[in-house]
């Protein structure tokens, strides 16, 4: 398990008070990351392949009922339970971004990592993805297409992190807040999702993570997620 290192600390903040579960992020993630669709039979077997899903919980009883939404994606743990169980170091911590990465060409498909992930954020390719022509034209050339037997998960759109860093280097300046916007944050109509570098003191998320509303999923497991949620739904009318 990797200790928090110096350098970048990519962190995502999700404001649950703003999330409307509109699913725009889910579809944007499919489009950006070449995530295949698996069809109804596979979904019934628990093999839905969304990297990002919006969980819905009921609160109260009819008629005083509310739904609570939590978008769940790879939490990019600083102490990631998926890393030590991988026999081939396919699931590992990246020093440069300080997130958890999956090396697809190392993965041998033991699924130990998926088994060990308390957030159920990892999805497995049970079959080769199928894109009947010309649907294959939609594939994003910046992202690998994964094949049967490979585990995959949210990468914080690492291709966009790299592109942002390259652009900044090209312009001879340090990476600024807002240079890197993952697909889910870019599309989110309510701006519920924000990605930033916690190492950058001027980043917007610096304020957010200090909020009284901030919490992490299953905090007591000590996984130290890099996804911080802001609790929602406090009302000023009784």
């Amino acid at each position: 398990m990797a200790e928090a290192k110096q350098g970048n600390r990519w962190t995502m903040v999700i404001d649950l008070d703003k999330c409307t579960a509109c699913q725009a992020c889910v579809i944007a993630c499919h489009a950006e990351n070449n995530v295949p669709t698996v069809g109804p039979e596979q979904i019934n077997m628990g093999r839905a392949q969304h990297w990002l899903r919006i969980e819905r919980y009921w609160q109260g009883e009819y008629p005083d009922l509310r739904a609570r939404y939590i978008p769940v994606l790879c939490q990019q743990c600083q102490h990631a339970p998926c890393e030590p169980v991988c026999p081939v170091f396919a699931s590992m911590h990246s020093d440069a971004e300080n997130i958890n990465v999956q090396v697809y060409n190392r993965c041998v498909g033991t699924r130990y990592c998926g088994n060990n992930c308390p957030y159920l954020a990892r999805v497995f390719n049970w079959f080769d993805p199928y894109f009947p022509e010309p649907l294959n034209e939609q594939l994003n050339p910046d992202v690998t297409v994964r094949y049967r037997g490979v585990m995959e998960k949210c990468t914080f759109c690492i291709q966009r992190i790299h592109a942002g860093a390259d652009r900044a280097a090209l312009e001879g300046r340090p990476l600024r807040d807002g240079d890197v916007v993952p697909a889910c944050a870019q599309v989110c109509p309510t701006d519920a999702i924000v990605l930033g570098n916690l190492a950058d003191e001027h980043s917007r998320i610096h304020e957010f993570v200090k909020s009284k509303r901030a919490f992490a999923l299953l905090e007591d497991l000590g996984t130290e997620p890099a996804v911080i949620y802001l609790k929602g739904g406090e009302s000023h009318v009784s």
């Binding site: 979904i43 019934n44 077997m45 628990g46 093999r47 969304h50 819905r56 497995f124």
Partner: peptide, 13 residues
């Protein structure tokens, strides 16, 4: 087909 109660590689059904 739904993901409610049906999430995760090894927890099908």
């Amino acid at each position: 087909p739904r993901i409610e109660n049906n999430v995760g590689v090894d927890f099908a059904n």
